[in-house]
């Protein structure tokens, strides 16, 4: 009983076979992403002469932005040789309205479904749930007919419209589940104080939505920006998004393959989502971690 206060030195941590295995696996996974990225980056700064020598992993002997310049201003996608620029602006013109519309609409429907008495809310949610898991290919043809009838087929408007429609079910479910966690007494208090659907939304609910908004923003920006199939299907001449331009450039260039230009083009296309990750990433993790709202 006298030695209860004696501190025993802790056993030094041994590196076990298990942790070695984990480390090896993680390193391999990292390499899997890092090595191609490294090659991509160095190649985009090389001149074609150096590339032809092989030596994929060597650093550029002469660093140059020529390939980047060419990819942005002059590279050909099909017959159109004005670089990725056009595709970039198309993507922006598609992204902004579809992002705004899909988030604004699904936020309000999610809010209504979670916090107000909506007739048939249960069946409606079930239908939404089903819709969220219908593969795009299945409704592609009807959507083409629909956009043709609306007279927007082949425009960026059509692409933005399809993105908005396709995102609505899942985003509504996401927002609805988030708002469902708001304490019921809070909304009761707001109903007694104001009673106005919109006023409660704007003044009480919207300011509480920061976390989930970040999550949804990242998901949506990434998925709309990286989309290829919808862009190819619904875009017309000169209205296709950046990803489609990139694919054309990389796959159908005639003559010698300009690896450096292709790599620069790929990187240019990836920059916007990357920027979003860097800017919003911190909040993204917080948003995912924040399950409940505290008063």
């Amino acid at each position: 009983m006298t030695d209860t206060n004696v501190m025993y030195p802790r056993k030094p941590k041994r590196i076990t076979g298990r942790s070695i295995a984990v480390l090896v696996f993680l390193s391999m996974a990292a390499m899997f992403f890092c090595v191609p990225l490294y090659v991509l980056i160095v190649t985009s700064f090389k001149e074609m002469d150096q590339i032809r020598e092989g030596a994929m992993f060597s650093l550029p002997t002469k660093w140059t932005l020529e390939a980047w310049h060419f990819a942005w201003f002059e590279a050909c996608s099909g017959l159109n040789c004005s670089g990725l620029r056009a595709g970039f602006w198309n993507s922006v013109v598609i992204l902004v309205p579809s992002l705004t519309a899909s988030i604004a609409l699904s936020m309000v429907t999610g809010y209504a479904l979670a916090l107000w008495d909506v007739k048939w809310a249960g069946p409606f949610l079930f239908v939404l749930f089903l819709c969220a898991f219908v593969p795009f290919q299945i409704i592609m043809y009807p959507l083409i007919r629909l956009t043709v009838t609306m007279g927007i087929y082949g425009s960026t408007t059509a692409i933005a419209f399809v993105h908005t429609v396709l995102a609505m079910p899942i985003l509504t479910l996401i927002f609805r589940n988030f708002y469902k966690d708001i304490p019921p007494e809070l909304i009761k208090a707001a109903i007694m104080d104001s009673g106005s659907f919109w006023r409660i939304f704007v003044e009480i609910i919207l300011p509480m939505s920061g976390n989930i908004l970040i999550v949804v923003l990242i998901l949506q920006i990434t998925s709309i920006w990286n989309d290829y199939l919808i862009g190819v299907t619904f875009g017309g001449l000169g209205t296709k998004p950046m990803t489609v331009h990139l694919a054309n450039m990389v796959t159908v260039s005639t003559g010698t393959v300009s690896y450096n230009v292709n790599m620069a083009a790929a990187l240019l296309t990836a920059i916007p989502p990357l920027v979003i990750y860097f800017v919003l990433g911190k909040f993204f993790v917080q948003g995912i971690a924040a399950g409940a709202i505290k008063g």
């Binding site: 304490p183 007494e185 809070l186 208090a189 707001a190 007694m192 003044e203």
Partner: peptide
């Protein structure tokens, strides 16, 4: 024409 005080206070957290 009523006002109510709730058990959990139900204050608006962002205000």
């Amino acid at each position: 024409g009523l006002a109510m005080v709730f058990q959990s206070y139900a204050l608006y957290p962002t205000k």
